[in-house]
Design a protein around this nucleic acid. Structure first.
Lengths: 242, 242
DNA sequence: CGTGGCCTTGAACCTAGTCAAGTCTAGTGG
DNA sequence: CCACTAGACTTGACTAGGTTCAAGGCCACG
């Protein structure tokens, strides 16, 4: 294969992208998708630890993840990070910067990750003529509002077991939606990051994982997870058993 | 004054509304504002306890509060309510329903409240031709995302004192922005609702109010609040003093 | 004057945090 | 290939902040 196409050019168009069904282009016609495609910038992949944008940077684009995983976090007044989300392929990040004109969080790659950059001003103009695109952008923001509400419920109502169960079930569903196994997957984030995100100490996260294994709910070998009792885990995640 | 205009017709147009500066019409020209105005429905005021929309109802409109105060809450699997926000005049509610086509929360009036109903389909069409309206709608959703993030930070990082202080400072700022006193105001919600919202037991809320009074931070006579040491309260709210 | 809802206060308990120590693992360089 | 190291993870003992349970006070309203 002479002059093989570099990785970053593969799936370099929305219409070829397997994630189009959960990303911005949903329900666009071919020509509309091309219009969107023309404004998308695709750079080289980020490596683990690379920063996509920083809290306080001027807001100019939103980003769609094409592959990999990222975390977003904000810095509290004391300077310690509070993780606000883990993001997988097909998801949009950076939207909370629209209001103030500056990103409100920092986005960092948890593993090798490629992103599509969508300049916001151009996107905005495009939404004027593409009603479906406008709808989808709204829908994605609205979904994020809903997910934040669920997160608030988790943080104010659920105990440590329920929090971890909820995260695992949530990740499981997102992996399945992307064509990966819902039962066995590899966590991109550390125990520390899980604790930070869920409002728990690392030690608590570790203890819960140990307990879940003793109860036969799952197998955890470092970051490799296998869910053994999906039903039970779901029950823990959904319900408030107290 | 023969045939006095009924209350609900006063300020019945966006261009006369004192809240236009923080509501949807920001930076619209007079004729654009009229276009928005034409699609807004204004009903009779809600009384305390009245439901504006219910979780699960079909999503059709978003609502702007013209006066009064509301709470939104969602029901957990166990059927107990989790309050997701307190909303004052000038604020928009119902946007989290856009994604699924059904409201994700129930909205209830905490006191006598008038609202402007904005049918979403019509609003959406209008945003195609009014770039400023589109921007503002996006900005308001983006702001809500940011506020939710702050709430998540509060729930996962702050102790009881800091949570109450944060709520009071937040309300204070919102009252000031609406032309009311930042130092003395009346809470529209009960201690129970405060605890529910902040992820605390009623008893804890009550104890913190008592402690704050002993420390000379504020005066609380039932729902009537007077802030005595604004600086100190701000410090508590902002910082993580642990 | 009684009733019910809301709020406050006290005491006991419990979950998760903190501190401290120890283990495991991946990566590095001899 | 192995020893070494730094960082991630686990485990145990103790602590503290907030919940729960129980009781009583306050106030509006009939």
């Amino acid at each position: 294969m002479p002059n093989a196409t570099p990785l970053l050019h593969r799936e370099a168009h929305c219409k070829d992208c397997s994630l189009a069904c959960m990303c911005l282009p949903i329900s666009l016609h071919a020509d509309e998708m091309d219009a969107l495609d023309r404004i998308v910038k695709r750079g080289r992949p980020l490596k683990r630890g690379d920063v996509l944008f920083r809290q306080g940077d001027e807001f100019s684009s939103i980003f769609a993840l094409r592959s990999g995983a990222m975390k977003t976090y904000s810095l509290s007044d004391e300077g310690d990070e509070q993780i606000t989300g883990f993001h997988l392929a097909g998801e949009l990040i950076g939207m909370s910067g629209m209001d103030t004109g500056r990103y409100t969080v920092t986005a960092v790659a948890l593993e090798t990750t490629s992103v599509c950059e969508i300049p916001f001003d151009t996107l905005d103009e495009l939404t004027a003529v593409l009603p479906q695109l406008r709808k989808q952008l709204m829908r994605l923001m609205s979904r994020e509002l809903r997910e934040d509400q669920e997160m608030m419920l988790l943080l104010s109502r659920k105990n440590a077991d329920q929090r971890i169960a909820t995260l695992l079930i949530n990740l499981s569903a997102r992996f399945r939606a992307r064509g990966y196994s819902a039962k066995a997957f590899r966590l991109a984030m550390s125990r520390n990051e899980i604790g930070n995100y869920l409002g728990l100490a690392v030690e608590t996260v570790s203890r819960v994982f140990t307990r879940f294994q003793q109860q036969g709910l799952l197998l955890a070998d470092g970051k490799q997870i296998e869910i053994l009792d999906y039903i039970q885990l779901c029950a823990l995640a959904g319900g408030q058993n107290d």
